[in-house]
Amino acid sequence: MKMKNHSAALFAVLFLFLSVLSDTPALAQEKGAVREGFSAEALQGQKIVLVRPSVWVGEQSMAGVPEPNADWTAQSRELLVAELGRRQAQFSNVIIAEPELVGPEAKLFADYRSLFSTVARSVMVYQFFLGNRLPTRKKGAFDWTLGDGTSRLGELTGARYALFVTTRDEYGSTGRKIFQLLAAGIAGVGVQSGVHQGFAGLVDLETGYLVWLNADGQMGGDVRTEDGMQKRVRQLLEDFPGLAEEPAH
């Protein structure tokens, strides 16, 4: 009897942790938001700079530790840039590429690319995951910023808005997949194999405010293939204000 109680307690603890780690529906999640007062009309006639995407692709070890894969990353970056280029004509705004800069100005773009990824992930973890929403954000207003220092990016490009795109993909290794099967078969619980995060966000460069964001920790599309990347970009740009919808393949 004592052993039975022990097992039940261990199962309960395991379920709690696995629920948290495997992004099960125990934690309801929002995937997109628009800043109050912002709409497609605000974008009319405005130039948008497409910031060079941030791409990371690798493998997830059995214990869930990410290991980078340079070939996959390079291939995915190439596919992402090509697909974003292909979709460019469907925007109702003028889209310009991040200029080829050197020195401190190139570093500034790189720094804001990093800050965007961090802010987008924070929105996902501390606002979109309803069960983990910070008490100071309980009212639900979408109020996130990169700071008004972004105006320098506007000066360098002549754009009013910047579109940032980040993808991070950790494909489950064979060991991780076996571990997933074992956990499901023996413990009867779900373990996540692989991470497929994608963030796309539009920033008002005059104020630094994030005015539109899509952020999902479970994106679809194998970013190592052309078809998969088309699916990923379709998801990333879903509900972008003023963007013509592409039919799903």
Binding site: F17, A63, V191
Partner: peptide, 10 residues
């Protein structure tokens, strides 16, 4: 099963 998960808990 639990050990590596607990080690990587967020």
């Amino acid at each position: 099963i639990a050990m590596p998960l607990l080690a990587t808990a967020s």
